[in-house]
Design a protein around this nucleic acid. Structure first.
Lengths: 366, 366
DNA sequence: CTGTGCGATGTTTACGTAAACATCGCGAGT
DNA sequence: ACTCGCGATGTTTACGTAAACATCGCACAG
């Protein structure tokens, strides 16, 4: 490029910014971005920049010969299309924003990973919008940052009740997909089939002969936790059993441990459905320390099927979630909405699968 | 154009989109992005668009009165600066790209989260670049996608040996920071003090009276694993002990389990330093199943201090990594390099801390 | 032999922002 | 009273791309 430029400026100067004398050899700003522009390529290839554009975007209407020449010039100059200019012209950023409160739960991370993967396949980038605290203010802040962000659509991995006030401030042309929520009336929602997975777990325990099934639930403000608790209660009721009072944790192994100490003391607690695997881990430790054997004395089923679940003591029977599929569907929905430039409503549920390992057995004395 | 526009919208209706006559009121392309532009705000506020720009960027030289008026107009029109135009003009995207192979290790996720957090504080967005497979080709592909991406700097969370060929194709103005690598000669590297953490762990075990310390290492192609193994060996040698042959895992709990079955059979294995907590989890299960008690018969120390480590059976003594600090330093380094528009070299190590829980004790018979 | 039509290519323009430069008006200094 | 200077504001321009429109030349029909 340097040669071409300088030659251009030095010779009789047929075209281009001939005005620029020997000085200023096309100075770039300090934090400059691009190297060669279409104009540079065009000059080197001896064509117009529009032709370069056509080649760059693979349009027809360019001779093979010309195309070849342009390609060579691009190669030589190391030309890369400037995405900012492209976005400015087209109004599309080819980017999806993901808002999430925390990356400390397996589910969120797995989903995010799948979203990034799917998006990349579709030629979209993923921008991460972390929200420090799960407060309305923080969420609103994230959305407001998002507003001036280069994003075509947003996927929200978060409880909706934190959303209400925030979403309305989003520019109307940004499409939203929500995970882990019951906002199906207002947005496209993609979620694991919490109820189905729960039902499978509870029925499995009942089928083993347990009189009833206890529940170590997630935090009250979690929609997923709520759903699992509801389905647990409903399944027991349907089966004519009396649901014992649920115990609450906060998803952490530590809280599972505390709950386990509690449950270990309860008479007649022979089976526990735990709302996630991490809490199940803590529960297992508490039961062990309390001298209750798993699965001989107490059966335990988790939820999530984190990679470590098979290495628990004993290996944990749990409900497998297909996070990859959730991510894929999110991206698909986001792109669909973008293309039709209109929101959709409704909920898509991704089925779960019960993974039987070694933490369940018939109740003692049967 | 301005005249045409004004004529178009120039009906008696002076302001607001209230007018919208039968004619096309400023039609936007289908997938259109922006609502109001500076020009719109300027028109409404009765100033020039440059003044709007000044207000938007908080520059001085604008009367309080004018500023107020412009603000009001912005508010009314729901004006949001167009980041594409901004990027085109300034050459900065205010975005940092993060390339990572997998989000299945705690370390990567934690680091990513911290990066996102720090970046947000600095007003930068984070774009995620997933690499499907840890092959040179895949990495090169990711980088090549990155080239046309709107990114000012890149943070690579990955073993460098996968990088060599790829990085050279990056546009020269994009700054790179690397984690988990020994590429300090070529890039800015931020990493946990693997050696220091390992030394603390091994010394702790020796101080308890163990004759030597076995090592369950991570995969060979991992730089972190290599460093930990080297430091383990060096520390033992320094102390005049003979390092037993290391056992290899692949970071997964499952591989830790297999290694544990192996180690449980070894005579004289009373202490194991495991290269990460997940493998330690599997190891604990294997030892348990083999009838070796932890910590009475065998002491175990992990690495990472994942949130669940305290809920293991027994709670795991482990080396705590400050991922948040790593992330923060990455962002700081990236921004620093961007601002001075030049790469830096050198490695920054983030100290670790040994967290003592219940998986270590003096060797049996002492 | 001349027009018609179409494929290949060039030219103009707009996208929204912000730097650089231009202008305008008013108060201070002489 | 008059200019100088400066603060407030306006005008021009460029960033890189791509749509829309313009042009050019050649093959083919009449």
């Amino acid at each position: 490029m340097d040669t071409a430029e300088r030659a251009d400026a030095g010779t009789p100067a047929p075209k281009g910014p001939a005005g620029t004398p020997a000085t200023t050899p096309r100075r770039r700003r300090p934090g400059r971005s691009q190297n060669a522009s279409m104009a540079d390529v065009a000059r080197l290839a001896g064509v117009s920049s529009q032709t370069v554009s056509r080649v760059s975007n693979g349009y027809a209407g360019v001779t093979e010969e010309t195309r070849r020449q342009v390609r060579a010039a691009m190669e030589q100059l190391g030309y890369r299309p400037n995405s900012a200019a492209r976005a400015l012209k087209s109004g599309e950023f080819r980017t999806i924003g993901v808002i999430t409160f925390t990356l400390s739960t397996t589910g969120n991370v797995r989903t995010l990973e799948a979203i990034a993967q799917s998006a990349a396949q579709e030629g979209y980038a993923v921008t991460l919008l972390p929200v420090a605290l799960p407060t309305q203010d923080e969420v609103r802040g994230a959305f407001s940052r998002l507003e001036e962000l280069a994003v075509d659509a947003v996927i929200v991995i978060m409880e909706v009740h934190l959303l209400d006030a925030a979403v309305i401030t989003l520019p109307p042309y940004v499409q939203v997909v929500v995970v882990d929520s019951d906002a199906g009336d207002h947005y496209t929602v993609v979620d694991t089939d919490q109820a189905g997975g729960t039902r499978a777990a509870v029925r499995h325990l009942l089928a083993l002969g347990h009189e009833t099934v206890w529940h170590l639930a997630g935090p009250e403000d979690s929609y997923a936790a709520q759903r699992r608790a509801d389905a647990w209660r409903a399944t027991l009721t349907e089966a004519g059993r009396t649901p014992p009072p649920p115990v609450r944790g906060d998803w952490s192994a530590e809280s599972g441990y505390r709950a386990g100490l509690d449950l270990a003391g309860r008479d007649g607690c022979t089976a526990v459905f735990v709302a996630n695997d991490q809490m199940a881990l803590g529960l297992l430790r508490a039961l062990h320390e309390s001298g209750r054997r798993v699965p001989e004395d107490v059966s335990v089923i988790g939820f999530d099927d984190i990679p470590e679940a098979g290495a628990f003591l004993p290996p944990l029977t749990t409900v497998h979630q297909d996070f990859a599929e959730v991510g894929r569907l999110c991206v698909a929905a986001a792109l669909r909405q973008m293309r039709q430039d209109a929101p959709e409503r409704g909920t898509t549920l991704v089925p779960t699968r019960l993974v039987e390992r070694a933490s369940t057995a018939p109740p003692p004395g049967r």
